[in-house]
Design a protein around this nucleic acid. Structure first.
Lengths: 242, 242
DNA sequence: CAAGACCGCGTACAAGGTACCCAGTGGAGG
DNA sequence: CCTCCACTGGGTACCTTGTACGCGGTCTTG
């Protein structure tokens, strides 16, 4: 079976039970890559950089991982594993989904590069799969599976959409290499021009509003989450009241 | 003012009013790049490829666009302009938001690479800004601006989240270079192993369900959209009934 | 103990973004 | 009309990055 014959990284055994004892491991490589991506962005996690991080030769990585793309899949699955879904479902679906949503949001904030990686069902890794199992188990007793899929998708979309927005400005600041205040300073003329043009009254309203004291990101998130949960509640039969 | 001094691509004039008449234009370059990305993915839209497409030298592109990253911003704004939001708000907020959601979804399906580009408010281009104006204008009369932001974010998240899911499998198929049936064939052993392991009952349920006849993507989208609109309705004052 | 599969990893190459340079062009000032 | 020079298209070259290939050493199996 040649390399290309494997469906995905999860079907490929890490090592064969033969030959010298490996010095490194997928786990070590993945952790190093995640560490670099967290600190400097996914594009900084080059094969050379990762190899340097763990004190390996660049090409040694390819003994453990078939390609950088596959490594990124490993990274994605790894951070999915950080979301605590033990003991789900607990019986209180609202509490369960809230816990999940918080966990997902915090994970994204810790690993903002996750926003740039595509994932699809057939390439789900073990952590991702377990997450789906536990998460969808929460509503499984109340609704048919496709309704469940829709509701979970709604929740996921809400969380990811919200966090994406939170993240994107922060990512741009980092990408520019400027400090946050320098970056704001730099953006000012553009925003100012738009506001002064008078053509964007609502944009202007947003900018003005942003200067007012308002809810913290956290509270804003909670508020929107309640809305989504209410929306989900409306789709459940009355037997699901918690 | 050196190149780096500009806030973003929108603050930088396309050309100076001096010297020989330019042969190309930002618009032509952007359109070519979008065409390539639509057909072969964003990573196929290299500077060399784009230059070849419009019959220009590679380095000529840099007379119009400071960098590939900025070009991608131009592309993103361009396709945002394809969403028809003329005459919004019409007075019927539900119809307006439905039209917008459909437009957004169709645009994403036409340009799936959009899923991989990050966008943030301070780098919004004219089309994106106009879209925000018109879209948020729909609910502006009914709710305060931060509530409006939250509701619009919910709608956007739903649409983008849903389309991302639709797209991701399709993108993976293309990336693999296989035909869809070959790809399904290839995935089979993995899915089979998971199902047979018995450890993933809900995943199994999803897979089984997928073999049953079910709603079309389109209908599924509409169904979920209704749910989101109901959720938005609940957040509006009674004066907003349409 | 011989064999062969596997180990770490150096070398080398292809692809892609882009800095730099050059010759040619055409509007502004004389 | 001529001169000047900021601008034009674009060729060459460099740097970064992913990764194919091969080598000398190692460890399990027959």
């Amino acid at each position: 079976m040649t390399d290309a014959e494997y469906v995905n990284i999860w079907m490929r055994p890490e090592r064969a039970a033969y030959g010298p004892t490996p010095v490194h491991s997928r786990a070590k490589i993945t952790e190093a890559a995640v560490r670099i991506a967290d600190a400097e962005g996914l594009e900084a996690a080059t094969m050379r950089r990762i190899a340097a991080e763990i004190g390996a030769g660049v090409m040694s990585l390819y003994r453990y991982v078939p390609s950088r793309e596959n490594l990124i899949e490993l990274m994605a699955d790894q951070v999915m594993g950080e979301i605590d879904v033990t003991d789900l479902p607990s019986g209180d679906w609202r509490a369960d989904l809230t816990r999940y949503a918080d966990g997902l949001r915090n994970m994204w904030i810790r690993h903002p590069w996750i926003a740039t990686v595509q994932r699809s069902l057939p390439s789900f890794g073990p952590n991702q799969l377990l997450l789906v199992e536990r998460l969808m188990g929460v509503l499984d007793a109340f609704v048919p599976i496709d309704e469940n899929l829709g509701l979970v998708a709604l929740l996921n979309s809400y969380v990811e959409g919200t966090v994406r927005e939170e993240i994107s400005a922060a990512m741009e600041v980092r990408r520019s290499g400027l400090s946050e205040s320098e970056w704001m300073e730099r953006s000012h003329p553009y925003v100012d021009r738009l506001v002064k043009s008078g053509e964007y009254p609502i944009f202007t309203k947003i900018v003005m509003e942003a200067r007012q004291p308002h809810l913290s990101r956290e509270d804003e998130f909670r508020h929107g989450l309640q809305r989504v949960l209410d929306c989900i509640a409306a789709a459940l039969p009355s037997t699901a009241e918690s």
